[in-house]
Amino acid sequence: MAQKKILFIYYQNLKPGGVAKVLTNLTSELAKQGYNIEILFLMAPHQDFYSIDPTIKKHYIDSFSNKYSKFATHLKKKYISIPKVYNIHAYFYDLGSYQVLKEWIKENHHNYDTIVSCWYKLSVMLSLDKVISKKTIAWEHSSFRVGGIVYDKLLRKKYKNLKHIVCINKPSVKYYEHFNTTFFIPNIIDNIYEDVKFIESNEKENIISFVGRLDKTKNAIDVVKIFNDTKTSSDWKLQIIGDGPEKNNIAAYIKENKLDESVFLLGIKSPEEISELLKKSKIFAFTSLSEAFGLVLLEAMFCSNALIAYDCEFGPSDIINENNGFLIPVHDKPSFVSKLQLLTQNEEHLNALMKSSYEESHKWKKEKIIQQWKEIL
């Protein structure tokens, strides 16, 4: 096979994040299959949080060094109390990123057969150039509703100039196919989950897991409230993996409701540590208010967890069915409590759902997903 030279573009691989995670997974797999992969990060050189195949060449351009980006940082720090200042900050930072990216890509794009942009703002930037856009694939990782008037109403129409669009949930495919040829390709799972065998209930503990950034969108506080309202035996525990701005609020709720012995904030963990924690748990509870996919739901399935999640836009409904768990209307805590109570009180039902959830995970193995990428590359 003739080597295809592919450039992936994203902001950073500095901290936990869904895009960085699937970017490193996919590029490493493609590199093993003979593709010549390079990655451009819009940040100064930094240590990788998620491991990247050593054959992959990495480039760095510091978007924060641009004058507009510096002004954006100044605005955010000095006027943090002003409503909407973050939106103003974002537009100035995007302008700075565009200038830095445009300069680098103009000089280097001829080195690549295909360019894959991993964020909608970067895809818009690349779509503005008639030559570069024709070799660019937009890999959409966020809801198509994000971006506000400037991106959603004005700039996304430029997606018609791109080579293709790849979406990670089915509703997004319906939205983007009005602009260009669009493919549904789910996110690829970590290698550490691919060969995990089914874990029997007696090898696990009575643990409910949540994994995600502790912010208002991921809504981890609802998991704690639901757990508090669920009538479970005292040996059931809730482990929350992740960190973020809502951590103190969640910790305060745990203390006020005397949940210190049953709810544990474990902080940021490595992918390997997360897999080991999920192998110990029986139920994965997810109360996110918005998702583009929900890769962590797959990880929980591979680790023999039954799933309960809010039916938020967009990912969970593509993943959860009667074979692996329950979809709950968003904010419907009583229904969530009811299903959680059912599983924690009915051991036979829980064991059966854990088994079928694991079996369902095989539909999401990497081989099929890699093949879909190879076909469009």
Score class of each variant (00 low, 15 high):
E291I: 07
K282P: 07
S270M: 02
T287L: 03
L297P: 08
L278S: 03
L295R: 07
E273P: 09
S281H: 04
T287S: 11
K280V: 10
I268L: 15
K282N: 04
G294Y: 00
S281Y: 03
E276M: 14
N305W: 03
S275V: 15
A306Y: 01
L297M: 12
T287V: 02
A285I: 15
I274C: 01
S290W: 14
C303G: 11
S270F: 10
E273C: 05
L295I: 14
K280F: 13
S288C: 09
K282G: 00
G294I: 06
L298N: 08
A306D: 06
F293M: 11
I274N: 00
S275Q: 15
S304T: 07
E273T: 04
V296S: 03
L295M: 14
G267P: 04
T287G: 00
L278V: 04
I308G: 07
N305V: 06
S281P: 10
F286H: 11
K279F: 06
L278M: 06
F293V: 06
K280L: 14
I274T: 09
I274R: 00
I283V: 11
G294L: 01
V296P: 00
A306S: 13
N305Y: 05
F302V: 04
A300I: 01
G294P: 00
L295V: 14
V296W: 00
E299M: 04
A285Y: 14
A309E: 10
F284M: 09
F302D: 01
S290Q: 15
S290L: 15
E299V: 02
A300N: 01
F302H: 02
G267S: 05
S290T: 14
S275T: 15
A285Q: 14
